[in-house]
Each structure stands twice: as structure tokens, then as C-alpha cells.
Write a protein that binds this DNA or RNA. Structure first.
Lengths: 294, 294
DNA sequence: AATATAATTGCAAACGTTTTCATTATACGC
DNA sequence: GCGTATAATGAAAACGTTTGCAATTATATT
């Protein structure tokens, strides 16, 4: 015996506007969706009527009819991460300028949540979805494919992937930084990378870094390869441990956040950067620029 | 003469599920919305039918009927900001666990966009909206009020505000840190705050900091009060300028990002923190912990 | 001036659900 | 067993739009 929780009082619909403008609802609808086909006088009538009534159209109702919601889903591992936040901000604000909205969801690197997230987005009938990287739950992917939802992957590039993507090659990036470090003459290089499970970007980077090193005739002993979460603080702690006894001459980090932590650690231990130690990262997010030591 | 862009092939509706389960659509609807009223045998039938068909319900259609979308709008100044990102992540992920979704929008501290944003959210018939602080476009606010949309303000607290809010008193925070600095014996204190236009949090902080200082019998000369954007890099540049000639003994910053920049500047100029200089900030976001100098 | 063509508009049938009301089947108290 | 309360279901009318089709009006062409 529940009552309507939110009253509809004062909420005018398209027919109210039509009535007030002296036209049919169809024409009002066209005014919004195909403004070019309605004549100038009627356009003015409708504009005025809508303004008078404070009409706000109901996209839900429209979407029901034409399967277009103007909403794009964005699934990221986490929002709380400098580099993703930068991206999300740019993405959402561009979309808003196109009169679209962004439905953001994060799974905290737990791919098992992807199915649940995708379902939730699909229930809201998103027009398309943007995913980070290539590692995804196959069930979630086929749910999207089955429903003809456009998919774009960002943040990585690989030849021959069968999903549309926009991104740089993480393999290439790792190859470049590692090659550069080696070219500088370093022979005792330490590698710190995040967990690569469910994270093709990190995996590509790590793999390429190690391959490049080996291709240069160097080997990477156990104590020169570490795992570290995406967190400046934890990276700092780990780096202090590494640097305080038997420090390498260079450290290649899987991302700039880890590199940041390493730099903090080195500084607090009194290292003179970059003379005592070379630190390389991958990412180039806005905060990286700041960390120069000048 | 446009054709449907997205085909509906293979997209089963509630009636398909009903047909397959041998019940009426009404019962299937109840299965989802009031599971307790449908009998166990039917429940099982429906579960199976829905799974077989890969049915994903259309919340848009439902919302059309019962004015409840399960979507909450979140309007923030910017996503790309450590402290907001932390909040958004937590907020969105909690909401997801409640089977709700978050529609995020940002205006980059340009309140004139609020009307546009609110309209866009309202067109999607959000159930409620979360805003940051108390400074808002009055038109946008009344649009929300007119439509009975629940509003919550976060990030600030003031006695007697007529909008529901969850947050700490920025006034009190600034009073505390400033008082603490003064209690430490500092008499030459510099203040660096962000622009306070459209930003009641910053304004409350700045005002309270200055008031507290004056209440202690100190005056704040022109060259001890600076404005600085929310950006580590810019704060660093500014702080270097301040510290390189005639440095104060303490700097109170409007937020931890600025404080971060100040610390970098001090370090790069060879200051021994906290002996040569006390630096205070407000915010306590996750990154702040890291910046301790140990 | 008459016809052909183009530009506007209205009608009414969807779109996929939810919910009220009514109906039927089931359990309970005596 | 009988009346009554309870539980489970179905039929059908919304919810607020959009759009194909048809009708009307204005414009162009000869």
C-alpha cells in the first residue's frame, strides 16, 4: 500500500508544453530532436512555452523508444589514481560538452566485478563503453558484444588486438626507458613493478623491461626484481629497504607513482639524484613534472 | 529515412522471459522488484528463463513508471584532484554495492556551468544529488528543489545552513592549525590560499586563519598573504619566490596540495624542515602522510 | 492559373516496464 | 466442511516520449 514517494506535482511533460504552445507533442519532440524541421514561428512558441513551464525533458522516455541514451560507460580500475583521475576528468568533461553523460564505475583491479558492473551499465542502456586495457572478463565482454554496444579500449596498444583501442604501446615505452638506462652505462639495475595480474599495461611493461635487459646481455637476479603496489608510500618503504643496503646504480619503475616513492626514499637517505642513482618511471602524469629536483 | 542504428535482434524483454517461464510479465517484474511475493517454484522458473535468454532488464522503462532511477548525481569542482578522487572512488563504489549508479559531473570551479549540469542530470531523472560545499548557482538549486530531488552537500559544515550536509567545519580546521602555529611561538607567518571565489571551503579557511591571527594580536602584511592555484607545481614556484628572500618562520597553506609544493620548494632551497620552517596544511588526503621527511 | 514539389505538422502506435485491481488457489479457525 | 483471511498470479492501463505515415499548407515551376 505504498504511495508514490516522489510526487509528480508541477512536473510538466511534453504534452503540457505542446498544449501551451498550441502545437502537437510530436512537434515539441521534433523541436528538441530535429530542430531544423520545425518552422521558426513554432520554434519560438515552443521555446517560450517550455521556458514558462520550466520543462525539462525526460530522456529516459525517449531512450525507451529509440535505444539511444546519450550515456557512455567508463570502467576504470580505480578513480583514485592520479593518472586515471586526469583521464576521467578530461573524458567526462568532453562528453558533457557533447550533451552526453558519463557513467563511471571502478572495480579496484578485481576483474570478477566486471560482470556485475557491465550488467549494471547495460541495465541503464549505455550507448557505448570505454575500458582500460585488454585484460577483461570474457563473460562481460560477450555481454557487451551480444548487445551491440560499442567498445573502446584505452591505455594500451598492441598490434592485432581485435578490440578498438586508443593508447600507446606499453611494451615500447618500457623498452625505451630500459634501453636508455642501459645506454647510460648502468649494469646494476633494479626493477620495481606493480602486480601484473589483471593488468596488461603493467605486464607489457614488465615483460619488455626484462627482455630488453636480457637482450643487452645482462641478467636480473632475484634481489633486483620487486613487486610493489600503486602507492607512493609503499614504494618509498620498499625503496628504502633496497637502497639502504647494496643499492643498484639505477631503478626502473613500472609507473611514475612508484618512481615518486623511490625518489622520496633516495632523498631521505641522502642520495644525490641523479648522480648517485638514476630513477626511471613510465607514465608522465601531471604530477611527474613537479618532482624534478631543481 | 533513417534506419534504427542499433538493432534490437537478440534483445529479449520481460515478456519473452515471462513466456518462457510460463508466467505473466507482471510476475517477472515482481520477481525483480518484490522477490518476496513470488512463490519459490515460479521464482525458479523465472530465474532459469532469464538466464537462458540472457535477459538484462531495462531500468529506463521501469523508471519511466515509478520515478526512481537508482542513479545519484555527483557534482564536483574537478575529478582531477587527489582529495576529490579519493572521495569519488569511495562514493561510487559504495553506491554500486547498493545497486545504484553514480552520474559524475565536474565544472572546474566554474559555477555558471552548474545550471547546464543540473539540467543534464535532471533530464536523466536522478534520484538525488551530492554537491560540494555551499556555494552554488541559485537557479540550479531551485531547479533541483522544484523537482523534489534530494540534495546533500559535502565537504563543509556550518551551523544553520538550510541544506543537508555532511562535512567538517573548514572554519574550525583553519582556526586549529593557525592557533597551533601561533602557539608554537611563530610571529612571522605567511599564508598561501587558493582563490576563494565560488569556493566556500577555501573562503572559510582563509577567513578563519586570518581572524585567528589577528585575534592573537598579529597583523598580516601584504607580502605575507598569497594566492595560489590548487597545483603542487605552481605552489612550489611561488614558495621558492617567498622563501628565497626574507623567509617567514611558518607558512600556513589553504590545502595540502599547496603545502606539498611549499615543502618541495623548501627542500630544494636547502631548508631543514621543520627546524628552519614550519609548514601547515589542511586536508589530510592520503598523499599527505607520504610527505613526511623521515 | 494549375500542377508538381517541398516544407510543416498531427495522429496514433510503439518502446519495455510497473502497479492497481481483480481473480483464483490455499490455509486457517471453528 | 464453511466462511474468512492470506498468498500468488494475471489483465490491462499507465509512464513520457519518438517516429512512420498521412494530411495539410506553402513554394516553385511551367
Amino acid at each position: 500500500m505504498k504511495k508514490r514517494v516522489r510526487s509528480r506535482k508541477g512536473a510538466h511533460g511534453i504534452v503540457d508544453v505542446a498544449l501551451r504552445a498550441g502545437v502537437s507533442p510530436a512537434t515539441v519532440s521534433r523541436f528538441y530532436n530535429h530542430p531544423d524541421v520545425v518552422s521558426t514561428p513554432t520554434r519560438i512558441q515552443i521555446e517560450k512555452a517550455a521556458a514558462d513551464l520550466g520543462y525539462i525533458r525526460n530522456r529516459l522516455a525517449g531512450s525507451l523508444h529509440n535505444l539511444f541514451t546519450g550515456t557512455i560507460g567508463l570502467i576504470v580500475p580505480t578513480i583514485d589514481n592520479a593518472i586515471f583521475a586526469e583521464f576521467i576528468e578530461a573524458f567526462a568533461s568532453h562528453l558533457r560538452q557533447q550533451d552526453r553523460t558519463t557513467l563511471i564505475a571502478s572495480h579496484g583491479y578485481d576483474l570478477s566485478l566486471e560482470v556485475q558492473i557491465v550488467r549494471s551499465l547495460l541495465e541503464r542502456r549505455i550507448d557505448g563503453v570505454v575500458l582500460v586495457g585488454f585484460d577483461h572478463d570474457p563473460v562481460a565482454m560477450s555481454m557487451l558484444a551480444d548487445r551491440n554496444v560499442s567498445i573502446i579500449s584505452v591505455w594500451n596498444y598492441r598490434e592485432g588486438e581485435n578490440i578498438s583501442s586508443i593508447g600507446a604501446s606499453n611494451t615500447q615505452a618500457a623498452k625505451l626507458i630500459t634501453g636508455h638506462i642501459i645506454d647510460l652505462g648502468h649494469r646494476d639495475i633494479c626493477f620495481i613493478f606493480p602486480d601484473t595480474k589483471f593488468n596488461d599495461r603493467a605486464r607489457d611493461r614488465k615483460q619488455a623491461a626484462l627482455q630488453t635487459t636480457e637482450a643487452a646481455g645482462l641478467t636480473v637476479p632475484k634481489n633486483r626484481l620487486w613487486n610493489c603496489p600503486y602507492d607512493i608510500g609503499e614504494a618509498k618503504v620498499l625503496a628504502k629497504k633496497i637502497l639502504s643496503k647494496d643499492p643498484p646504480t639505477a631503478i626502473v619503475c613500472g609507473n611514475d607513482i612508484i618512481a615518486h616513492g623511490v625518489i622520496y626514499a633516495a632523498q631521505s637517505l641522502g642520495f644525490d639524484l641523479p648522480n648517485d642513482l638514476s630513477v626511471g618511471g613510465i607514465g608522465d602524469f601531471r604530477g611527474s613534472r613537479i618532482s624534478n629536483l631543481a
